[in-house]
Write a protein that binds this DNA or RNA. Structure first.
Lengths: 133, 133
DNA sequence: ACAATTTGTCAAGAATTATTTTTAAGTAAA
DNA sequence: TTTACTTAAAAATAATTCTTGACAAATTGT
């Protein structure tokens, strides 16, 4: 079997053809919405349903294979990179990039003012290079 | 007239009774969803429509009286505080707090790696004091 | 082959936006 | 000060869009 199938099983979930394909789409694109995945797989798997994509991506998050990103209210995005990092979102075309900058250590705090911190989301909004021209 | 009416006019928008009430609800609660505002005004203004609350809050954002906050995919929040600051969101009860911590200067950058930055959103997710007990 | 998961279909839910008509605000003239 | 006028805004629906739920049928891994 493929590496991906092994990976899925190692996380304790079944390696179906749909899941492998969805994982590969996620991995190749980095940041995806459910619809992105659905569209990109439509040629290969015409029977795939959007509901399956949703449940699968959520399942990936549960087992630590992806993270949910909240960048706008109109769509959920999923991120293959589960390490601590920031994002840039283009307000014109919607494209999303990872941003690697030196982080304030405080952003990794586990507790601030008595509040228990589990994670931090840092998003820059602006205009990407392509949209500037 | 009230201070609020003057404020609205100074931003170039008409000071209607609905807008004054919506602004006051926003100002008193700090972070609100459209539904929060609608519910809190229902006794005073039973004729107020939810669509009006939505358009009004968006209008406030356009003229710089509020900021939109994207903290989860299931609801838009609006923030009376338009200064640069971070947020904390309780994953248990949904309450939102402002977080005042020393910021990395890089988070205020206007340009990173050729990307034009207009704003930054920093959100800590965790469990608030009340929900810990 | 069997037990448990997962998929696909279909439909329901919920938040937000669009549209159209009616109403009210701001403004300048009588 | 009142009156008329122009334009923005509110109300009332409708419509969209994203996301989730329920359940029968199919598939996985043991």
């Amino acid at each position: 079997m493929t590496d991906v199938a092994e990976l899925l099983r190692s996380k304790g979930i079944k390696a179906t053809a749909q899941r492998v394909a969805i994982y590969q789409a996620l991995a190749s694109q980095g940041h995806v919405s459910a619809e992105d995945v659905f569209d990109s797989l439509f040629n290969k798997m015409p029977m795939l349903s959007l509901a399956t994509v949703y449940t699968t991506l959520r399942r990936f998050c549960e087992v630590g294979l992806a993270d949910e990103m909240v960048v706008s209210n109109d769509r959920i995005y999923f991120d293959i990179n589960t390490d601590f990092h920031h994002h840039f979102v283009c307000e014109s075309c919607g494209s999303i990039y990872d941003i690697d900058i030196p982080f304030c250590s405080i952003l990794k705090s586990k507790e601030i003012q008595g509040l228990k911190i589990k994670r931090f989301s840092g998003i820059f909004y602006g205009i990407c290079k392509r949209c500037r021209s």
